[in-house]
């Protein structure tokens, strides 16, 4: 049986957001601070989310070349 499982704090999702496990404070491009509020948070990487700095799934409707 497997004894050790990978459980990284930060996960880059191909073509999607950055997952953050645990509590963090994120400063956005305008210098505003946002505190995470759930066990895992998804940070926007495509720049198109309407809910910055969090992912809102918008990357899925972007053409491939604009996906992160």
């Amino acid at each position: 049986m497997k004894e050790h499982f990978d459980h990284p704090d930060v996960v880059v999702c191909p073509g999607g957001p950055l997952l953050l496990r645990g509590e963090h404070v994120i400063e956005d491009a305008e210098g505003r601070q946002h505190r995470t509020s759930r066990p895992v948070s998804a940070v926007c990487r495509c720049g198109k989310s309407a809910d910055q700095p969090w992912c809102d799934g918008t990357h899925k409707v972007l053409p491939d070349k604009l996906k992160p």
Binding site: C13, L19, R38, S41, W54, C55, D56, G57
Partner: peptide, 14 residues
């Protein structure tokens, strides 16, 4: 659900 499920879809699938 906009915000939570953007996380949950990654967790559920991956």
């Amino acid at each position: 659900h906009v915000e939570a499920d953007a996380v949950h879809e990654q967790l559920a699938v991956r």
